[in-house]
Design a protein around this nucleic acid. Structure first.
Length: 476
RNA sequence: GGCCCCUUCGUCUAGUGGUCAAGGACGUCAGGUUCUCAGCCUGAAGAUCGCGGGUUCGACUCCCGCAGGGGUCACCA
């Protein structure tokens, strides 16, 4: 067992969670769980303008659906509460005050326009914008309502990132940055550092887009006299069609939409983990426990990975097939078609055992099972488009169906008896399976596809099967 | 433009100097499984390892350069 680590997932409540955020949460959760440590949820809600109503609950629901349980955090509570960043302003201000006293922060009262002018100046000179090159000469004494800027001390850094490896940067990338905004809220760049210390976070897991800010953070940690936590910057998840980061604008789906479509949380977890990580063997399928056991940050890929829904679908189908019927029945609740309302659980379990291996996601259940619950209207096109039946003579088909009906009427409708009688009919009528079975299948299901014929008939039962054959007979 | 990171089949990836004229999975295609769809089984196509130099008896693996891609340079996170 490794040293217990404390990790946190710290999203902003700016809308729904998509796969990118979820994977960050997953990796942080795995690292905490495998070490016997803690995983917490902190909400970084210091940008009140971008905040979206309901996001926090949505984040909690998403984590709950995936089974990423928290030891502490928003919605859970804990010894380091509050876990809502906006409620921790006193702490942030205490530390900000320290920086002011040490002359490591200054009020920056310049307007957005003034700053834009110097930014443009930097751009014109083809130089990166560094606020420290434009420090105001006589900043006023800081008062609430004024933006507060960190006064950096340019330093070269070398540090180790659990995913990215060793990184070296020169002093030219360290800069002054805003730590408290005019609205009184701290920026992420400042607040997360204070909160992580206060909450005893040992490992920070976040997206790769933060790597370039690390030198700034290191500078701030130094000024604050804080030992930086272990850091791991995760590669991004890319759009399926390109090299760009997957974002909400690219149609990145709400993670809970996958829940609605009937994706299994364990499949989602497995898939997300395999995007950018593998254990070095040829294993593709991992249970949650195996993930906890085998996950290693330093085996995480440094390059981005494209999000391939086809692979997710396959993996979901795979996990569905691993479920016991009882478990599948539980998961399938809420996915049945309207027509299934009065059906017994016993009947529905039988159906599930027939369709389990053809399910890719649970939302397919209605289209796959509707005919089990209701007589569908006779659809002539099913015969017309069938390669075995399209050219057959209608009178012949009718005779065939009548013969079959008579034979089935004597069956007890066990799978075994049905199989025997169906096979017997082939010889009796001198008909190819393609013709006879297609005809009976279409008659009894009126569906373009269905499970194996004997199985289907057995579940449907004698009354229903014969009634439907009669319905087609009447329509032919 | 500066800085940082990345570059193996369409996609996710294995690979840490020789056992790799590169393995697995998804996807695709073909065949099989007495009808359909799915599943399962078998098989096929698919990467001269971004390019160019080194180092070495030998490089996908080490070094240098180049190119391409991404990230970042907010009072957003």
């Amino acid at each position: 067992m490794k040293q217990p680590v404390r990790t946190r997932f710290a999203p902003s409540p700016t809308g729904f969670m998509h796969v990118g955020g979820v994977r960050t949460a997953l990796f942080a959760w795995l690292v905490a769980r495998q070490s016997g440590g803690q995983f917490l949820l902190r909400i970084e809600d210091t940008d009140k303008a971008r905040e979206v109503e309901g996001s926090i609950q949505h984040i909690i629901d998403s984590l709950d659906w995936l089974g990423l349980n928290r030891d502490e955090g928003v919605g859970t509570g804990g010894p380091y509460a509050p876990y809502l960043q906006s409620e921790r302003r006193d702490r942030h201000m205490e530390w900000a005050q320290k920086l002011i006293e040490q002359d490591r922060a200054y009020a920056d009262t310049r307007s957005e326009e003034e700053l834009d002018v110097i930014r443009k100046d930097a751009a014109d000179k083809k130089k990166p914008f560094l606020a420290r090159d434009y420090r105001p000469e006589h900043p006023p004494k800081w008062e609430p309502g004024m933006p507060l800027r960190f006064k950096s001390k340019p330093t070269a850094y070398s540090w180790h990132d659990e995913v990215m490896g060793d990184i070296h940067t020169g002093p030219e990338v360290v800069d002054d940055f805003i730590i408290v905004k005019a609205d009184g809220y701290p920026t992420y760049n400042f607040a997360h550092i204070i909160d992580d210390v206060d909450m005893r976070i040992t490992h920070i897991m976040r997206g790769q887009e933060f790597v370039s800010s690390v030198p700034n953070y290191l500078n701030l940690y130094e000024a604050l006299g804080i030992t930086p936590p272990v850091m791991a910057h995760l590669p991004q998840i890319l759009r399926p069609d390109g090299t760009k980061k997957l974002g909400k604008r690219d149609g990145a789906k709400d993670i809970l939409d996958y829940a609605k479509d009937g994706y299994l949380p364990e499949a989602m977890l497995n898939f997300l983990a395999s995007l950018g990580w593998n254990d070095g063997t040829e294993q593709e399928i991992f249970s949650k426990d195996e993930l906890i056991q085998k996950f290693e940050l330093d085996r995480v890929q440094r390059s981005g990975a494209r999000f391939d829904e086809k692979r997710l679908e396959w993996m979901n189908g795979y996990h569905i097939r691993q479920l016991s019927i009882g478990e599948l029945y539980t998961r399938a609740e809420g996915f049945w078609p309207e027509e299934a309302k009065g059906a017994t659980s016993e009947y529905k379990e039988k159906i599930l055992s027939l369709i389990q291996e053809r399910l890719k996601y649970l939302a397919e259940i209605p289209s796959l099972t509707r005919f089990f619950f209701t007589d569908l209207p006779v659809d002539r096109s099913l015969i017309e488009n069938n390669k075995y039946l399209s050219s057959a003579d209608v009178v012949h088909l009718k005779t065939l169906l009548e013969t079959a009906r008579a034979e089935l009427a004597d069956s007890n409708f066990s799978v075994e008896d049905l199989t025997n009688r169906l096979n017997g009919l082939l010889g009796l009528t001198h008909t190819k399976p393609g013709v006879l079975f297609s005809l009976i299948r279409i008659a009894t299901t009126e569906a373009p596809a269905s499970p194996a014929l004997a199985d289907t008939l057995s579940v449907l039962g004698k009354d229903t099967s014969l009634r439907r054959i009669d319905l087609l007979l009447a329509a032919l």
